[in-house]
Nucleic acid binder design. Sequence first.
RNA 1: GGUCGGUUGGCCGAGUGGUUAGGCAGCGGUCUGCAAAACCGUGUACGGCGGUUCGAAUCCGCCACUGACCUCCA
Length: 491
Amino acid sequence: MIQEIQIYNTLTRKKEVFTPLVPGKVGLYVCGPTVYGPPHLGHARSAITFDLIFRFLKQIGYKVRYVRNITDVGHLVADADEGEDKIEQQAKLDELEPMEVVQIYTNLFHKAMDMLNVESPSIEPHASGHIIEQIEEVKKILDSGYGYESNGSVYFDVEKFASENEYGKLSGRKIEDLISNTRVLDGQIEKHSGLDFAIWKKAQPEHIMRWPSPWSDGFPGWHIECTAMSTKYLGETFDIHGGGMDLTFPHHEAEMAQAQAAHGKPAVRYWMHNNMITLNGQKMGKSLGNAISLEQFFSGNHPLLEKSYSPMTIRFFMLQAHYRSTLDFSNEALQASEKGLERLMNAVAKIESLPVSDSSTLNIAELTANCYAAMSDDMNSPIAIASLFEGVKFINSISDGKSTITSEDRDALKSLFHAFVFDIFGLNAEDQNESGSNEVLNEVVDLLMKLRTEAKANKDWATSDKIRNELAAIGFEIKDGKEGVSWELKK
RNA sequence: GGUCGGUUGGCCGAGUGGUUAGGCAGCGGUCUGCAAAACCGUGUACGGCGGUUCGAAUCCGCCACUGACCUCCA
């Protein structure tokens, strides 16, 4: 079942045939969230992108170990390395223990991921749970000569590394440009060069998050956690490393250098980066203060949102764009996705009851091949979705009596749609809002429907329209179909 | 300033040297007591100016606009 696929490797800037290190198995590492704030649309894009990759690789027969970390230590909040740990900063604001903050936002993240139907990774390691492994990596880097200790902190010697290895290749940077562009920051006296980055940082007295190490009581530098955890769970060399495009520099560049320094060989074979979500053409991000949280999307509680958007709408919206393109948020675009998704899901539900004939007027095998070909070409979900809509048109046409399908093809079509819609794209039928669980409400509305149907039978249009219009005003949508009346409570 | 991208029809968004992306909206139709919903049909776009070519939206050059990274960031 395993077929040839191509993926775009940021390192080489082109699509490459994907060949795993170990046949049939894939090691995938993705930078997860820093849990100091509520999850926003950007987190969803990354999570959904790599969820798609995870799901597709499994679908075509690979055994995948997917590691996505939780960053809960180490980020510095200020320009200088003297700054407080970001998580600690938030903790002080909230008057909570740092790990309490971590727990709160980790839970929120998990909840949002569940709602978006993002599968759990195989392993979700916390940086704080791998301090020992990180210290070991720091030791290896010191042993290899690419690190130096300075006043209790340990730094990575970028210029030395660059003189003997490639540095800047991933992000397309030249070391000379970096040197001339680096800002001179306070507290840099400890470093030999402004390019150097901390791999272990001595904690200031007031710093709460701290661990003992051979150099000082402190905390690990940001970049080292991914090297330590990917090495532990996937090995010194593994297949795919993913993350948001904004992480390519300096984070991933530093990771590449560190791993090379520590292990004497490159760690990552394919680098994959998802692009950003934009809002009015500008990147949506926590640091820009324009991030809309996922909770706000689900509830519609944000000035920029005209209405609430379900998790599946968000998911489908993202799948309709290629992961390497920026995706611009707008109410109009989201509403278009919402309707498209509804049409897709309605068609899926219809397949089973489609009437069969002696012949098919659409080539299902070809449709199937197109879908897999699209995904095999660097996870081109929008193309695959376009093919699926070809199938939707066909399905509706059959139920309209204008096209035909054989029993065999109907089974194939059903398999195709189930594989793509549910397994690969991870879309699921939405619950029929809260009304679905409210039996009494259902019965009351059904009663009104019955009264309206009776009024219609008596040609008492005044009464039937009154029932329909007043229910509509409350938010109910009344659908008169050939098989009878149905209704839905729209938010 | 440096580096790398982007500019596609009303909106979102694929793609590509010559052939319909797709979704949404709009329009027309079917259905309906009328609607709504649903379904069917329908659009002919590729920033500007040059160049290469039998042929470019797709390749090259210049220009304009815009974005990302260069600091934490998905």
